[in-house]
Each structure stands twice: as structure tokens, then as C-alpha cells.
Nucleic acid binder design. Structure first.
Lengths: 345, 345
DNA sequence: AGCCTAATCCAAAACGTTTCGGATGTCAAA
DNA sequence: TTTGACATCCGAAACGTTTTGGATTAGGCT
């Protein structure tokens, strides 16, 4: 049987395309009997509306876009799965699909945005990992295109919807915790400076240190990308310093895992010889050996919330709250046990 | 400035829509000077082709679909992230996008397939977690729609493209390994029987046991879904039996993590009092306490390969190999240390 | 002069849907 | 008998693109 379209239904039932369309659309200007006849025929032919044609005509694709940020291996990070899951669940509930794109060899990240946004493929987009002077945000603002961001930026010319975790407070809390445990040489492995959250977290670290009157040894502050490997490499460097840190805070849990491996590789014990802290609280964090002290971000929930707001923006209805700062939670586990008192050297 | 379309470009340059289209399309029946003029104007207006219109006309959406299977919390499983990552990377390279959908309250899984497949939203789909008498596969076969599956099925009326891991061999290898370590009471927590891989793996387990002449205590074979919680719950039940197992093999790593927690909760030591095995080798498996003995599936790679084949199917070109059975690798870690000899009771 | 070729351009149809603005017929009220 | 009002239906345009099948012109050849 050929493909079922409004035309084939019209022919089969003897009504016009208009009437068929309106019958299926549930309009009240079509006789109930007619509607039933049309519905029956539609069922018989296995009719499904062509979504491209509908999107073209309605200028709505019922799709929201998510472009995976480049730089770093990004995806395997469980963080993404959880976030995507939150976005997807909320979107599905509203009858929206998710278009997941990636930059490739011949298409840069911003090109992908242009393609799917200007190309009418999506009705709105969700951004993650906001960056300093974020060109994606500039582009979307300029086009007045609906979007919502996980993370703040320094582009504050206009108001837009974002949800961010208070990294400053979170990192400060962890730093204080480590200081309480008697640490003074606390290293901080910060994420790339182009990522906005890098700033805030570093700020929290510095504030807490200053608050306690501890001078920061700048050799203990190193930048590295968000992968496990980078975490391990940098940790090894730190631990080989003449005056190694007694505690290392990593920019995310993945890096923290690398740090823990490095510590072990140096023949030291995590949590006893060297305290380790992470950020995110990915599922694995709890099951590490020892458990990873980290800062929990409600990633799934943030994904949901962002999507909910994005959908409101798309509908054009007023958005409840435009931007939110979420208080993260410090999760204490074995990786930040106090150093053994007998370890003085 | 209004939205740029072929029409606006045509008006601005004085050429016809046809010529503009062909100029941008790189056809050789348009004068080079004209093409330059048109390109310049396109750039000036920031033209991006409307992808819905193009898809409508070409009957190609340059998109491949991925519907997240329901049943189980599925997504947070790191497995998905990795798979999606493989699919996405390969798709992006070919200029394809990914449409990720989920079943919702008012739309069952098969409805979603109908919608995006018959609705022309995607050019092909990737399935995962093949099921017994899989209705998704029946539907796609019936419509002659391009698809590729992670996992075999029992629907073998027609040939179609799949890649599967030899779960029988994998599970048998692990069972043998445990038997070598002196275990006899080996429990198996099998995934839901509707999932195809559940069969093969169980087969491997039974074969290896038979091979060693060990009778299976059927109370040690329990079914449970693929979540951490289910793993823990069932493990507790097993461990409370009058004759508890000395080894537990879980259907995936997530469940194995639950099992490990259960073991600890019972005051026993993982790997010493009770051996634990998983399946998948998710990234966290390596960092657990102790490391999880498991069977590695090259998930990312399988995602890539499936996508490559699907793209060939879509292009209509001949597919190199239609179906493949991948040999999994047994990864030995601390969770399957031999039970202490002094533990006889 | 007539014919052919090559280069360059374009009108119109088509993809499948939605929607605007009537058209038609019926029936009750004036 | 006219006039609305209502219920039901439909033609045609529009969304933005690609593609088919020429049309037009200029130049080279017989």
C-alpha cells in the first residue's frame, strides 16, 4: 500500500483534504459521522502525519536541541547522561523530541547551532557548560531564540533563563571542611578558565582559605581539563613537589578518580595520607574506594527544570522564575578523612 | 531583517529561485560570477536553508532515531551514555543528527516508533536491548525501514543488521572462572526474560556448570530488573538463604554494585567471603571497592559500528557485513578473589 | 543562411500539511 | 417569502525547498 497522506484519505473517503485535516485535528466544524468515517479510514491506512510538512507549515518542530559541547571527551562523563535524562523526560512529557547534535570535523559548534536554529529544526535549545563571553549565547540572544542554560555567564546585557549551582559556596564549604580536618596545603585543580563555573569555584576556594588565614601556594593551583587522565597526570605532578599538598580538590568527580589513582600509584593512601575532593557526585562517587567526598549537584533535576522553563519560553507564556542559583550539598565520604597524626615528616 | 529564504535571495540578486538554489547547491549550470554574487548575498543575509522544507522535498531528514527503551530507569545507566556517544560520533561525521525520544504517559514505545518512522522524521533507527518477539523489529521489517540493532532476536524471518556480544561465551567464561576459584554455589541474577540477552547468558551459565558437573540449585537463579536497587534487594534475599551462595553473578554492573552493597550490609567481605561478578564493564567498575570482575562489552565501538551500517543501509549501498557476534572479554578484578580457605562453616 | 552545441537561466510542479475565507444547504424566526 | 443563523464542507494559498524540462542567447560550423 502506498504511503498514507491526507490526499489518499480524502480520495478514499470522498471528502476534501481540508475536511480530512480538520477531522483529524479535532475541529468542531466537521460532522461527527464524517469524523468517524475519516478516523476509521485513517486507521485502516495506518496514517501518520508527515511531521516535516507539518513543521514547515506551522513553523514549529516540537523539538528541542542539545548540542554536545566540544573540548574534553565530554560525553562519557556520567554527568551528561544524567542531564540528558532529565531534559529528555521533561521534554517527552510535553510531546517534544530531543535533537542531539555534535560538532564534527567540518562543522564547528557554533555552526551546528546556526544550522539547527536558523534551519528551523528546533524550537529552542538547552545549553550546558556556559563559557566566558559565550558566543552561543550571543548568537541566541541576537536571534531572540528561546534557550535555557545550565550555568551563568558574564553576558548580562539581557536577561535570559539559566540555572546554576552556587559553585562558590560549594567549593568554599569543601575547603572549609578540609581546613577543619587540619589541612593547610590544599591543592585545587581547576577546570579550564573559559568555563564560567571555573571562576566561581576558584573564588570559593580562595575565600575560604583567606577566611582561615592560610596563604595559598600558587603552585598548588593547576588548570586541567575534565578528564580522568588529566586528573591523574596533574595529581602526580603535585604529589612530586618538594612540599606536596595534603589535600587535593578536583574540578569534577572524573578528575578526582584520576587523582585517587595517582595517590595510590605514589604508594599513598587516599583519605589518610592525602585527602581528595570532587565535584558533581556522579553515581560512582559513592562506590569508590574509599568513597569520594564531593559536592552534589542535582543534575537530573536541573535538566528537568531548565526544560520546563524552555518550554514556557517556547509557548510564549510567562516564565515563573527566569534564573535560579541552586545551593549544592557537601557530601562527606572516606576520601577526606583527617590525615593520620603520626604522619608528620 | 526578515528571515532569509531562497525567495529573499532571489529578489535581492535579481535571479530566480531556481538559480539561487542551484548556485548554492553547487551545480555547474550557473555562471561563476553569478554564483559568487549569490553566495555573497547569502552570506550577507545570513541565509540558512530551512531543513524542514528540504526534508519534505527530498524525503530525507538526515537524522537517525534512537528511542530510549522503557522499563527500568534505564538512562542513568552509564551504558547508555557510552552507547549514545558512539552512535552520535559516527552520525555527526556523516552529517546526520540524532533524534532521541522517550516513551511517555500517552505514547507507548511503539507509538513513538510509528510517529517518527512513518512521520518521516528519521531516515533510520538504532535499537538497543532486543527483546523476545520484538514488536519494534516486526514493525520496522514490515515497513522495510532501515534499522540496526544492538542484540539479536528470535525473529529471523528476514535478515537484518545487528551486532551482538556473545553473552553465552561471556557468562560461561565467568562461571568457569568462579568454578576455578573453588566456588560451587554460584548464584545468577538474570535480567528480565523478555530481553534476548538474558537467554544467551543464562545458557552460558548453565553450560559451564554442567561442564563442571555441578548441579544448579534453582533457588540461586533469580530474575530481577537491571537497577542497583533490585540487585541489592535480591542479593540480600540470596544471602539470607540457609545455604547462601559463595558467588553471585549479576546481569549487569549496576546490579553488581547493589550486590556488593548487600554483601557488605550483611557484614561480609566482597571477594573474600562472597565473590561478585558483573556484566558490561562500565567505567565505574574499575574503581569500585574492590574492583568488579566483569565482562567487557565494547559499547562505544558497537554504537559506532551499528551506525556505520545503518548509514550504509540508508544510502542504499551494500552493507559489508550484516550481522556480527562480538567476543566479550572477561575482566578479572578483586571482587572475585577466592574465598578464604578458613571460612568453612 | 541554417544548424548545432554549450552556457546560462527560469517557470512550474511537487513534497504534505494547515488555515483563511468563503460556499452551500437547512431550518427556524420574522 | 425573506432573513439570519447554524452546521458542514471545500478551494486555494502558503510554508521553503528541489528538480524537471525546457527557453534563450551566443558562437562556431557547414
Amino acid at each position: 500500500m502506498a504511503k498514507a497522506t491526507l490526499k489518499t484519505l480524502a480520495r478514499a473517503t470522498g471528502y476534501s483534504i481540508t475536511t480530512v485535516s480538520r477531522a483529524l485535528g479535532g475541529f468542531d466544524d466537521v460532522n461527527e459521522e464524517t469524523r468517524q468515517a475519516i478516523l476509521a479510514e485513517a486507521y485502516r491506512q495506518g496514517y501518520e502525519p508527515n511531521l516535516q510538512a507539518r513543521a514547515l507549515q506551522k513553523k514549529r518542530s516540537q523539538t528541542i536541541g542539545l548540542v554536545l559541547p566540544t573540548g574534553g571527551p565530554s560525553f562519557p562523563d556520567p554527568f551528561f547522561g544524567e542531564f540528558l535524562s532529565g531534559v529528555g523526560s521533561e521534554a517527552a512529557q510535553a510531546g517534544f523530541d530531543l535533537l542531539v547534535s555534535t560538532a564534527s570535523a567540518d562543522l564547528t559548534e557554533i555552526d551546528v547551532y546556526r544550522r539547527i536554529v536558523a534551519g528551523g529544526r528546533v524550537d529552542g535549545v538547552i545549553l550546558m557548560r556556559s563559557r566566558v563571553d559565550d558566543e552561543r549565547i550571543r548568537y541566541l540572544l541576537e536571534r531572540h531564540f528561546p534557550f535555557a542554560v545550565f550555568g551563568r555567564t558574564d553576558i548580562m546585557d539581557e536577561a535570559y533563563s539559566y540555572i546554576d549551582v552556587d559553585g562558590r559556596a560549594g567549593q568554599a564549604a569543601m575547603t572549609r571542611h578540609l581546613i577543619d580536618r587540619g589541612h593547610e596545603r590544599i591543592a585545587y585543580m581547576r577546570p579550564p578558565a573559559t568555563l564560567m563555573f571555573s571562576r566561581f569555584r576558584q573564588q570559593g576556594y580562595r575565600e575560604a582559605m583567606a577566611e582561615a588565614g592560610i596563604a595559598i601556594d600558587e603552585r598548588l593551583v593547576v588548570e586541567c581539563d575534565l578528564t580522568e587522565n588529566a586528573g591523574k597526570r596533574q595529581a602526580l605532578r603535585l604529589l612530586k613537589l618538594k612540599q606536596p599538598p595534603t589535600a587535593i580538590m578536583a574540578g569534577n568527580d572524573l578528575m578526582a578518580i584520576g587523582v585517587m589513582n595517582a595517590v595510590r600509584e605514589m604508594g599513598l593512601r587516599v583519605g589518610e595520607d592525602v585527602a581528595v575532593g570532587g565535584f558533581d557526585d556522579i553515581p560512582a562517587a559513592e562506590h569508590l574506594n574509599p568513597g569520594l567526598t564531593t559536592i552534589r549537584q542535582p543534575i537530573f533535576h536541573i535538566g528537568q527544570q531548565l526544560t520546563e522553563r524552555l518550554l514556557q519560553l517556547i509557548e510564549g507564556s510567562s516564565v515563573g522564575e527566569l534564573s535560579t542559583l541552586v545551593e549544592p550539598e557537601l557530601i562527606l565520604r572516606g576520601s577526606s578523612n583527617p590525615p593520620q597524626p603520626d604522619r608528620q615528616e
